[in-house]
């Protein structure tokens, strides 16, 4: 009833988790059966280990939060030699979010992940708003986005999902550019660039001054962008941005997403993903929908 397909990825249901909100999955193993997920996207992985930005890195804002973690991660080598072996047995799609500061770094990470048997896809992060070099720099220009995607396409042979930034004038234009460069799917949206000031201390809340906004506050923006992109490209769209409930997930599907990712909601309820899966199934039964694909992109 809930099975969907994103390019070559068979998902038992459309529910995945968003990179940077779910660690390597292990952190949530006490709360949910990870095998129930359609898939999960692990922490943004770069060519070498990164310490990320200084603390403070987050602040709660109305119906959302700002973060500026800055891609702290153990690096691709340690991911392949240690983390991968701890999670590869899971019966779900494990997707690695791949990031970098240069086209060479993106390609090198993608190539190393390509060799891992139990990783069927990568999510190319050309949209991180919290790093100085690379990240969003690649994702806000159609030409740059196409360049990095076509370079990675040459070395990566499995499902290539490209994660798009909402901090652009026309997200559909970027989506078309990466589709033309060989992307198999696009996921959107990454966080919206924001800022918050502690007026008592008269300084920004975060050490990095600006950060990425996530949570329910961004959901209508994300739904609009998913709808625009779904109408602009032929490849499947993965939707994310503030999804907290099964109803939210169904809204994204109707807007044109084939699958969705749950992010910030994992912090509020570590078991939210299975509740969303169960809720989607209940919604389908209640509405006489025998195959979730019937509602994808109906708007």
């Amino acid at each position: 009833m809930l099975a969907v397909k994103v390019h070559n990825l068979n998902l038992k249901n459309p529910v995945m988790t968003a990179s940077g909100t779910f660690g390597y999955g292990e952190e949530f193993a006490d709360f949910i059966d990870l095998n129930r997920l359609g898939g999960f996207v692990v922490k943004g992985t770069t060519g070498t280990h990164r310490e990320g930005n200084p603390y403070p890195r987050m602040v709660e804002t109305p119906s959302g939060m700002l973060n500026s973690v800055g891609l702290q991660n153990c690096g691709v080598e340690k991911f392949c030699s240690e983390v991968y072996h701890r999670i590869k047995h899971l019966d779900t799609n494990i997707i690695v979010n791949v990031s970098g500061s240069s086209i060479e770094e993106y390609c090198s990470v993608a190539e190393q992940i390509d060799a891992l048997e139990h990783i069927p896809a990568i999510e190319l992060n050309i949209s991180c708003p919290n790093v100085k070099c690379g990240g969003m720099g690649f994702g806000t220009s159609p030409d740059m986005a196409a360049q990095v995607v076509s370079a990675v396409r040459k070395v990566y042979h499995k499902t290539l999902i490209v994660k798009l930034s909402p901090n652009v004038t026309s997200i559909a234009e970027i989506a078309k550019a990466v589709e033309g460069a060989g992307a198999d799917s696009v996921s959107l949206i990454n966080t919206l660039l924001g800022m918050a000031i502690d007026i008592e201390r008269r300084r920004p809340f975060m050490a990095n001054v600006t950060g990425g906004l996530s949570g329910p506050a961004v959901k209508p923006v994300a739904v609009r962008m998913v709808w625009q992109v779904a109408h602009a490209v032929k490849i499947p769209v993965v939707g994310l941005g503030g999804i907290c409930t099964a109803e939210d997930a169904i809204e994204f599907l109707m807007a044109g997403a084939t699958a969705i990712e749950v992010g910030t909601a994992n912090f509020i309820d570590p078991a939210v993903t299975v509740k969303i899966i169960d809720g989607m199934e209940a919604w389908c039964k209640k509405h006489g929908v025998s195959d979730i694909n019937e509602i994808i992109g109906i708007i």
Binding site: T21, F22, E27, F28, G52, Y55, V69, P270
Partner: peptide, 22 residues
């Protein structure tokens, strides 16, 4: 005591400096 979001080591928001890094 640092500002936290997830509480389980997933979001990496609450880091402190240590001799081994964040």
């Amino acid at each position: 005591e640092n500002m936290m979001a997830c509480g389980v080591g997933a979001c990496l928001c609450c880091v402190t400096d240590t001799d081994q890094g964040h």
